[in-house]
């Protein structure tokens, strides 16, 4: 994968400068995975680590996920546009402090479909729909922002699902949720899922029983998605890491679409935005009678 490789020297130089000067304790970026093809997160603490940093179209992870764990130190982070929206989300929800995060923003060429040991040549679905190729928040920008961003995201997949009958929808989701092994990889990959004690693992009240059964899986998936309503920044990492290929984006994107239509809101666009479910407008009707 060649696209994006030319950005590497700039990222490395900036990372080295930050670590050498002591401006940050750690640089979170990507390095080549052990398959020699794909990427994995790198935590560079020493200037010497910097030469491992890479950036190309295999750098899938949303590294903003790690910022909450690093909130007690000062870090730099390599951020694609979707990662930058996650940074804004974390700032808005007071999980991180802006002055302790140095954002090396990367103009993103889109990430390709890849699994360990294998790289495809197709862009990931999320990248095909992407509206932002330039990060929304950064201290240092790498790459040339495109002159024009593609038009608004279509929701063909969601509309298709909406058009199905209740019975079809029910059996579709029942089948999806039945496959879930509740490994919670979706949660671990998500930058918005940072609760120290997830509702799904609480014993009192017991919302989600410990058994892996359709009913418990259903609660997990519905509430996971709803807890991200108006917060999900569409990096789609949850779906990418799902070992049983549950189409989680179909849940997330439904809520994203409705949040946009009902409240005119997209998450992660600014660090000051109040999430739509924590506010209201008196005059709005939202399709309900008076």
């Amino acid at each position: 994968m060649q696209e994006g490789l030319d950005l590497m020297p700039q990222i490395r130089d900036k990372a080295r400068e930050l670590l050498t000067s002591g401006a940050v304790d750690c640089v979170i970026g990507y390095e080549r995975a052990s398959d020699g093809l794909t990427a994995r997160p790198l935590f560079a603490y020493e200037p010497n680590d910097v030469d491992k940093l890479i950036f190309d179209q295999t750098c899938a992870h949303n590294l903003a996920r790690f910022l909450v764990n690093k909130r007690d130190s000062t870090v730099a982070i390599v951020a694609k546009p979707c990662d930058s929206r996650a940074i804004n989300l974390l700032l808005a929800e007071k999980q991180i402090q802006r002055e302790r995060v140095y954002v090396i923003g990367v103009v993103c060429p889109g990430i390709v479909e890849a699994t360990w040991g294998q790289i495809g040549d197709k862009l990931q679905a999320r990248c095909q729909l992407c509206r932002e190729h330039t990060p929304l928040v950064y201290d240092f920008l790498v790459g040339e922002p495109p002159a024009e961003e593609p038009p608004a995201e279509p929701y063909h997949d969601v509309a298709e699902m909406e058009a199905k009958s209740a019975a079809e929808k029910h059996s579709f989701w029942a089948e999806q949720f039945a496959r879930c092994i509740r490994c919670y990889a979706c949660r671990q990959a998500c930058p918005g899922c940072y609760c120290t004690e997830c509702f799904a693992e609480q014993l009192d009240p017991l919302w989600v029983g410990i058994r892996i059964a359709p009913m418990e899986n259903e609660v997990w998936h519905i509430i996971r998605a709803f807890h991200l309503a108006g917060r999900c920044i569409a990096c789609n990492e949850c779906e990418r890491v799902c070992p049983v290929n549950i189409p989680l984006s179909l849940l997330n994107r439904k809520l994203e679409k409705d949040v946009l239509e009902l409240f005119g809101f997209r998450s992660g666009l600014s660090a000051e935005a109040v999430p739509p479910l924590a506010t209201f407008k008196k005059e709005e009707r939202l399709g309900m009678s008076e």
């Binding site: 929800e93 007071k94 999980q95 940072y194 609760c195 120290t196 004690e197 609480q202 109040v274 999430p275 479910l277 924590a278 506010t279």
Partner: peptide, 13 residues
């Protein structure tokens, strides 16, 4: 306080 993640959305609401 052990469960609270300090998002402070409750303060907002």
């Amino acid at each position: 306080a052990m469960r609270c993640i300090g998002c402070l959305l409750c303060v907002e609401a």
